[in-house]
Design a binder for these strands. Structure first.
Lengths: 184, 184
DNA sequence: TGATCTCTGTACCGATCGGTACAGAGTCGG
DNA sequence: CCGACTCTGTACCGATCGGTACAGAGATCA
């Protein structure tokens, strides 16, 4: 891995946190330079398209991570129930038990949605479809309905946990999901 | 009702829509003047505290509406099951079947949360508590758990419906909630 | 009519916004 | 040692940000 790629990857991770905290509009270049440790010169060297390109890179990175860690196992793992449990475990860990916000969910609520509508929709549609596939393979009835409800409950749990400042809300929601998803 | 109050009330409603679409940081004074039809002079006459005071007024207005239309009936209506059905009906109507976003939920996700943390937490806590109260009065088991899950599912449904650009997701979620909440 | 109060438009403030231009530091193969 | 290429800091751009100051329009009442 060249030094360039490593730096760019590190920058993407840092930029993601800034977007997560401030949203797309609210993520000022000065906040991004502070967090990444990169000056404007470097930033526009890595992302000539400016904030828009940074956001694209961040969304692609997140999408890639979820595909690798969660969606693919749900679709392909020989043991679909294990894949579902893994999804819940990885989700808890990724969102830091509710302390971390879903960037894509946050983007979906604001007017940022229009700009990245395709990517945002694709992310949630992929999650819903992969989970439905796993439920089908596990012979659970109403797979589509359960899958949609689970994806939606995770997003809602993130909102509510953050609103109440109580991560236990998120943990409880995931426990409930495990029961509901795997019930016959 | 004096003209002043009417104008201020109308302004609050218009400002609420701007916050809803752009978030707190993203709601520029120029967007607010455009939407309200009021110049800066009038705006700062009605809200001397600027954007912060506008947001406070908007949050108070929303909280008042929900208390009147939903929370109070859940707590006090002689028929708690009817109050729950009313909650679902009013929720569907308020959020335009998923086309409209929850301003308070959106605020909760961004860094705006810290500024209005108390109000945001109070709103969701009141909803959860009022619904739990109604479920208790209706002799449903696990009232607290069901209530928390319902509040969370509504927020999640708003996120997912908007992310996918498909309001049917929201409608389905409400139908599911009616079944779950009123089940023995 | 004249005094008063409510409301509004406009000019203006310093700060910050996202973005550009560009010189040059640092590193590398030849 | 010499270009060539990668990366970075800085100066600068016009636009817009939230907020202030204030004169005065318009209605109201004595």
């Amino acid at each position: 891995m060249s030094r360039t790629v490593a730096d760019r990857a590190a920058a993407i991770a840092a930029v993601a946190e800034v977007f997560r905290e401030h949203g797309f509009e609210g993520a000022s270049l000065s906040a991004i330079t502070a967090r990444t440790g990169l000056g404007k010169g470097s930033l526009y060297y890595f992302f000539p398209g400016g904030k828009e390109e940074m956001a694209e890179a961040v969304l692609a990175e997140i999408d890639g991570w979820f595909t690798r860690a969660i969606f693919s196992p749900l679709r392909d793992d020989a043991d679909p129930e294990a894949a579902i449990r893994r999804m819940l475990r990885e989700t808890d860990s990724y969102f830091r038990s509710g302390r971390r916000v879903c960037l894509i969910g946050a983007f979906a609520l604001g007017d940022t949605r229009d700009r990245f509508a395709a990517r945002i929709a694709a992310y949630f549609a992929a999650w819903r479809a992969a989970l439905a596939e796993a439920l089908m393979r596990a012979n659970r009835p109403e797979a589509s309905e359960r899958a949609e409800h689970a994806v939606l409950a995770i997003q809602g749990a993130l909102v509510l946990a953050r609103a109440l400042g109580d991560q236990a809300v998120f943990v409880r929601a995931l426990e409930r999901l495990e029961r509901e998803l795997l019930a016959e």
